[in-house]
Amino acid sequence: MKKAIFIFILAIVFLIPAFAQEDTEGCKDSPMFNRMPNTVIAGCSKNYDEFAIPTAQDKSETKEGTKTFIQYAYNNESGVPAPSYFQIVKNFENAVLKIGGKKIYYNKDAGLATFFTKSSGKDIWIVVMDMAGQNLGNFELTILEIEGMQQDINASDLLDTINKNGSITLYINFETGKSDIKSESQKTIDQVAEMLRSDHSLKISVEGHTDNAGTPIANKTLSENRAKSVMDALIIEGIDKTRLSYKGWGETKPLSDNNTENGKAKNRRVEIVKL
């Protein structure tokens, strides 16, 4: 009897490591999201890569950027039933909505959900996939970070372009849904001001454009406010306000297809038009 008890205790001792699940060494959560309860990281990777992002039924868009991959496994020894895939998706959806993002695609049967948001001038795609379609609390998280529209411009090139084409298209980063110019776009403002200082006869109209997210009225107001912010920034740079005017076109003059995020990004722009 005592021998049987000893064997039983010994078995428990050797089973303890199996219950004490830990994250794979070197792996950690994304700072964007809180971890689902009772999960551990079974694998991870981070590199610059391309990724096919599900955007609709049998449709995907292949994009490239910094790809973070995290594989989560549910700890079945927690004593708590595993969350459904629907519950996992809602957790991520709530987190994305709080930071101004949105859900792009959800297919419960296929175990796929895609979200999109922006942060620090980057387009961020999030894909949550039910691992092996088992609906057992195990899932894979892929985050693709794509640098926003960037321009390497100088005053001389700007002057040549506006004299040749009559306008310049600029991608100035603003706070989401606002007209506040982000600090990373100050270099662009500086170069436009330098262009105007190099030709004192040049007068311009600063014209704002948006994508089709939101209502037409709201977009027109936003585009006007953003155009005015750029004009005001040029006045601060010492440009005579009599040489400047502004206008907002809202979503009425798209450059690209508003049905894709890349198209929307191209449509969110400021144009400098020679008068």
Score class of each variant (00 low, 15 high):
59 K>A: 13
35 R>A: 06
108 K>G: 04
41 I>Y: 00
155 A>R: 00
77 E>H: 13
117 T>G: 05
87 Q>R: 14
215 T>I: 13
200 H>I: 14
222 L>V: 08
240 D>I: 11
251 E>D: 15
48 Y>G: 08
108 K>E: 07
78 S>H: 05
112 L>N: 04
47 N>C: 04
12 I>G: 03
76 N>L: 14
226 R>A: 08
274 K>Y: 09
224 E>F: 12
186 Q>P: 00
75 N>Y: 10
124 I>L: 06
123 D>P: 03
200 H>W: 00
124 I>M: 12
127 V>P: 02
106 Y>Q: 02
7 I>M: 04
65 G>Q: 11
134 Q>P: 03
31 P>Y: 02
245 S>M: 14
56 A>T: 07
223 S>L: 08
184 E>N: 08
273 V>D: 12
213 A>Y: 12
85 Y>K: 09
186 Q>T: 15
258 N>T: 09
18 A>G: 02
142 T>C: 00
46 K>P: 02
49 D>M: 11
266 K>S: 09
18 A>I: 00
210 T>G: 03
7 I>K: 06
133 G>V: 03
71 Q>M: 13
57 Q>K: 15
59 K>G: 01
248 G>K: 07
168 I>Q: 15
211 D>K: 08
121 G>A: 07
104 I>R: 10
72 Y>N: 07
127 V>H: 05
178 K>G: 09
105 Y>E: 04
235 I>F: 01
94 N>H: 10
257 D>A: 04
239 I>T: 01
109 D>P: 02
107 N>V: 03
20 A>M: 14
38 N>F: 12
201 S>Y: 12
123 D>S: 11
251 E>F: 05
151 Q>P: 03
161 T>K: 15
74 Y>T: 01
174 F>Q: 01
119 S>R: 07
79 G>N: 09
124 I>T: 06
6 F>E: 06
272 I>K: 14
76 N>T: 14
144 L>M: 09
27 C>R: 07
253 K>V: 03
10 L>M: 07
